[in-house]
Design a binder for these strands. Structure first.
Lengths: 343, 343
DNA sequence: TTCTTATATGGAATCGTTTCCTAAAAAATC
DNA sequence: GATTTTTTAGGAAACGATTCCATATAAGAA
């Protein structure tokens, strides 16, 4: 870690025999400079190994070429894909991505928005889990543009941020699928309704009558919740013939425990999850799921943010909705009491 | 996104009726200021909602309070945990983390090191996959401290970076385990030796004789490689009775395909993976694996980096080795020759 | 060639901090 | 109360870029 190089634009100017303004023009391709001198400057830059001080540039230009990405927890199965897509898109435009872990805690999410200036970024992409009352308020007074990846509840229409979301039909898709394959006693397993309300709402709305004994609320959307749900369903005298799992982790935990308990999936119970994370294909049976389009959604959220940063406009916020996509795998098939049948 | 607040230290000074130097002292607790005036300044800051310009601070102080984390691909199962631990540790010290995706491409890894100044960070944590000849050279001339999370080959002893690694006994642990449970025809499945050499070396070193027909080199460490390995092993007239998988993804892919092919795990073939990623517990059978201590390793790597940044020293680089830990699950059990017979 | 216009170039101010240096005020010493 | 030492405060010079503005040079028109 030697030469903490401190070669400045002035050194370059001297070496190239030009003024500092000229060097700046060469760096930034800002025109008003002849090809000849530009080449001269570029060579001097190369010889000296000059790298412009981003701090100085930031101070003058007032941009940082950084955006922040605030996610609940990078260890959650559906998050890495989002982080990846955001970074790819950002890199393409010369932006770096600062990661903020909100731990899915509403308070931290709000603080992140409130103190976004402390992050030294030109914009913020946030994937909130909680939506307290002050959310919109804080977003609206943010000094930098915000892009929201919204897998939660509907946001205030007057919110001053670009929003990319899913049509919130993912639950309905899963339910319709289970109904479509002839299941009649469909259960729900997942976190309590206040976490991702829509997931449970879809369950209720897809049924003419809700049998509360078929609803299992765990603490969260985890493997563990799935396992406990399996125990619970197995304990019923009248088991469900399908489970709509609030997400894939729950579905995986559920199926695994079912297997231990001797419950066959999909013969006895069909299962459909949500998120379509890559681990739906590593279980046996592979799990039917609904893709929440993480890559598409987050790429667009990034593009919108960068566009707004670049164009520096505040009006007309975008709200784009993607459609979730049902992916049928082995864990949910038509009821056929003869041979098993996959597709 | 309204009031792009541009309240500066001068505004605060005026409001508090003091000089700008005094305001600076109040902000930074740098002493030489009476409690009375400090309170006055702090109040003014609060009233005006002043937030110091990080760009200006960086320019003067020449630090950014940011570190970069360069990883192969955040979507790889063992990476999120590392990213998480790094961020937690960094946050604790008031540092932000900029994520760099190297896609596991050696060229990009080298570029990241070479151009680290462009990242606007005070230090770099890198988890390299490849170690080309120029690696050490580039690290040594880096203008900022570097901390290496090393799961690969041994690094040059004179490298100017803190290194946190595993004792590279993870492969041996897995092999000894398989041998210990009585398996005699142990196979290898993973990427070619040039990717993570040690994983394969451990295989060779743990055996008195290597049967090349029991070695399957896929393209990478993926589910797909595992699946293809399963096909290959099944096609042998004389199947292995255990597979040492280069990582858990391979193990998962392998087991899944084995199941489709009617090969029983662990009865016919025992399987042990490496990484101990969380998905080893969601398969059936759950997979024995060796923990690579991701959280511990990366937390320490971060601590060492931040210490070096803070103390600004260049001598005496640390090299810390963690011991991997074997975790036995269902996929590998002692051979019990009771009724079942293979050949 | 001479005058006009377009193009290149350099100087100096600026961005918002920190910090050195000097001066004033307060505290301590005699 | 006078003098010295210690604290506290403010002015101004950096930090390293960008960019406005004025000027010099090259190109084009007459």
């Amino acid at each position: 870690m030697p030469n903490k190089s401190k070669v400045t634009i002035e050194d370059v100017a001297e070496r190239a025999g030009v003024g500092i303004a000229t060097v700046s023009r060469a760096i930034n391709n800002s025109g008003g400079i002849s090809e000849k001198t530009k080449a001269k400057v570029l060579q001097a830059i190369d010889e000296l190994g000059f790298i412009p001080s981003i701090a100085a540039q930031s101070l003058k230009i007032r941009n940082t070429n950084q955006i922040a990405l605030a996610v609940p927890d990078i260890r959650n199965a559906f998050v890495p894909e989002i982080a990846w897509a955001v970074e790819q898109a950002a890199k393409q435009h010369g932006y770096r991505v600062v990661h903020i872990d909100t731990s899915g805690i509403g308070r931290i999410e709000l603080e992140t928005i409130r103190d976004v200036k402390k992050l030294h970024v030109d914009g913020l992409i946030i994937l909130p889990l909680a939506y307290p009352k002050t959310f919109t308020e804080l977003v609206n007074k943010s000094p930098v543009p915000i892009s929201i990846i919204n897998y939660g509840k509907k946001l205030a229409p007057d919110i001053k941020a670009d929003i990319v979301c899913l049509s919130q039909q993912e639950g309905r898709l899963a339910m319709e699928h289970l109904i479509g394959i002839g299941r009649t006693r469909i259960a729900y397993a997942g976190a309590p309704r206040d976490i991702i309300e829509e997931r449970y709402n879809a369950y209720v709305n897809s049924l003419s009558h809700v049998d509360v004994s078929l609803v299992y609320f765990g603490e969260d959307f985890s493997l563990n919740t799935g396992a406990k749900a399996a125990d619970y369903f197995k304990s019923l005298k009248n088991m469900p013939d399908a489970v709509y799992a609030g997400n894939d982790m729950v579905a995986i935990g559920l199926i695994n425990r079912f297997k231990e308990l001797g419950v066959r999936v999909p013969e006895d119970v069909a299962v459909c999850g949500i998120d379509n994370n890559i681990y739906t294909t590593i279980t046996s049976p592979q799990i039917s799921s609904v893709s929440i389009m993480g890559v598409e959604v987050s790429r667009l959220a990034t593009e919108l943010l960068l566009k707004r940063i670049r164009e520096n406009v505040t009006g007309v916020y975008e709200k784009v909705q993607f459609e979730p996509r049902l992916i049928v795998r082995e864990s949910s098939v038509k009821i056929q009491r003869t041979t098993t049948y996959l597709d």
